[in-house]
Every structure is written in structure tokens, then in C-alpha cells.
């Protein structure tokens, strides 16, 4: 991966916007992501129906004008549940990325700045955590701590740490030998100052791309955990749980299994396109290959 030669300047940032508007992946991904995030935000103030109200007489209604996506086995409006479910998905995935970045980036930067034995030990430990199947560990962690959204966040977050540590370290190692770092050292700055002032701004792009990828993976992981009953707990709607409930009713109401699935695919697709778009823009060498 190549890095920008120096810290981003205003003209480079203007170039980013212009390039972003011309990049199809970025545009589609951005629109989808904003749409889903907007839907989740909107659900705090308004949903077509109340998702906590069970109307048994209206149960399992197929999609219609009054219930755009139909109703579930308790008569809850599926569209409203999708909107509220977006909230849980985004919250879990976002905080998990936050945990991964918050702990992984300092570790990776520290390893790159110190080198030697610190670097070796940290990276070996990273390899060990990496070798664990993350989903398996997430299942065990949530099973032990008890199933809840918070524990799902912790479980997914822990496995984001080595990912960010690795990306931050690789990025930082490419910046350290540069001349402007040498200049900063000559000016008497210590490693922490250099890391904060010069390394971080230069690897921010890489971290942003990895962030969108881990965010998408977090959405998938949350859906999987909720599906097996270890994520967001009912009555709070979640996409994974909706799929679990739909499984036994697939013969009568296939739309119940289709709609939450499409919501997950749409969201993850949007985030992946956004990530691809950003990395295309910041790293033109990769674009040749796409």
C-alpha cells in the first residue's frame, strides 16, 4: 500500500471530494449507508407502527398498502421492526469497531514505534488471537457472560482489536522511515508526539477503510449471534432474531424470512462498496486492479 507523500493539505481534500463524486462504488455505498443510518435515526422519533404493541388479530398479514412489509406472528409491523432493528445492528457494530480501533490502533502504533521485542511480542500475541475463530469465541463469551446486546458488542469488539493493530502497525511502519519523520525527530519530538502528530493523520485513510470493512463484518456477526439467540434480546427487534422467528413459518409467510435478509445484505453491501470506494480514491494504484 502506498501512502500520501505528506500530510493531507486542503487541495488534496478538495481532490478527495471531486474524486468521490466520480467514483461509482463510493457513491452507491455512501447513499445506501446514509439511507440505512437515516432509517435507524428516524426510528427513534417515528415508525409506521409501535413495535412493542402486539395485535394478534393482525398477525401474519402479507405485505399490503397498510403494512408495506406485512406483519409478524404477533401482528407487529415488519417495516417498523426493520427500522428499529437497523438501530441495534448499527449500534452493536459501531461500538465493536470503536473498541477495536480504540485499543488496536494504539497497540499497533506502539509496536511500530518501539520495534524490537515489544513489536515481536505484540504481533505474536496478535497472531494467537487471530487464530481463534472469532465467531466461536463470540458465542462462548456471550454464552458465559449471558446473552445480551452489550455482551455481543464486547465479543465482536475483542476480535476487532488484532485487526486494527495489524493495519495500524503496517501503515505506521511505512511512514516511520520517511523524511518528514526524520525532520520531526531532529526538531526534538518524542515518539509519542510523532505518532500522534504525523503517523496517525497519515494512516487515518487506511483505518477508515478497515473501519468500514469491520463495520460490515460486525453487522453480519451481530445478525448471526441474534439468530442463535445470543445477541439483542426480544422484545427489542433485531434482524437476526426476525430470521430465526421466520424459519419455522417459511411455508406460510416466506416474506418474513426474505425481508430481514435483504436488509442485512443491503446494509453490508452498502458498507463494502463504501469501503472499496474510499480505498480506490486514496490509493490509485489499487484502482488499476479493480
Amino acid at each position: 500500500m502506498t501512502m500520501p507523500a505528506a500530510e493531507p493539505t486542503n487541495s488534496q481534500e478538495a481532490g478527495f471530494v471531486a474524486q468521490a463524486l466520480r467514483n461509482r462504488s463510493f457513491l452507491i455505498g455512501f447513499v445506501i449507508t446514509v439511507f440505512i443510518a437515516g432509517m435507524a435515526l428516524l426510528s427513534f422519533f417515528w415508525t409506521p407502527y409501535d413495535v412493542t404493541k402486539l395485535i394478534v388479530a393482525d398477525r401474519m398479514l402479507p405485505p399490503s398498502a397498510t403494512h408495506l412489509f406485512g406483519t409478524d406472528q404477533f401482528g407487529r409491523d415488519v417495516l417498523s421492526m426493520i427500522m428499529v432493528g437497523a438501530r441495534s445492528s448499527i449500534a452493536v457494530a459501531l461500538v465493536a469497531v470503536g473498541i477495536g480501533m480504540g485499543l488496536g490502533v494504539p497497540l499497533g502504533c506502539w509496536a511500530a514505534a518501539r520495534g524490537g521485542i515489544v513489536d515481536d511480542l505484540l504481533m505474536r500475541f496478535n497472531d494467537v488471537v487471530f487464530a481463534f475463530p472469532a465467531l466461536l469465541s463470540a458465542i462462548i463469551i456471550t454464552a458465559i457472560l449471558g446473552p445480551s446486546a452489550t455482551n455481543a458488542v464486547i465479543a465482536i469488539g475483542i476480535f476487532n482489536i488484532p485487526v486494527f493493530a495489524r493495519v495500524a502497525r503496517a501503515g505506521a511502519l511505512a511512514i516511520w522511515p520517511r523524511e518528514f519523520i526524520l525532520a520531526a525527530r531532529a526538531a526534538g519530538k518524542n515518539r509519542t508526539q510523532i505518532t500522534v502528530e504525523h503517523i496517525l493523520p497519515n494512516i487515518a485513510n487506511l483505518l477508515l477503510v478497515q473501519g468500514t470493512i469491520q463495520f460490515a463484518l460486525g453487522i453480519l456477526a451481530e445478525a448471526g449471534l441474534s439468530y442463535v439467540g445470543l445477541g439483542v434480546q426480544p422484545p427489542m427487534p433485531s434482524w437476526g432474531r426476525m430470521l430465526f422467528d421466520a424459519q419455522t413459518r417459511m411455508m406460510v409467510a416466506p416474506y418474513l424470512a426474505l425481508i430481514p435478509g435483504f436488509a442485512i445484505v443491503f446494509t453490508v453491501l452498502g458498507l463494502n462498496l463504501l469501503g472499496d470506494g474510499i480505498s480506490d480514491i486514496i490509493d490509485p494504484k489499487l484502482r488499476r486492479q479493480r
Binding site: A216, L220, A223, G224, Y227, L243, A246, Q247, M250, P254, A257, P260, G261, I264, V265, F266, V268, L269, N272, L273
Partner: peptide, 18 residues
């Protein structure tokens, strides 16, 4: 492939069963 990456395997399993 872009779509395939975004599909959760358990949902895909439900579609296959159906």
C-alpha cells in the same frame, strides 16, 4: 461476488431450504 460477500450464510441456508 460483491453481493455474495454481503450474504449471511444462515440466511442463505434458509433460502436454500425453501
Amino acid at each position: 461476488a460483491q453481493i455474495g460477500v454481503a450474504v449471511p450464510n444462515f440466511w442463505f441456508a434458509l433460502l436454500l431450504i425453501y
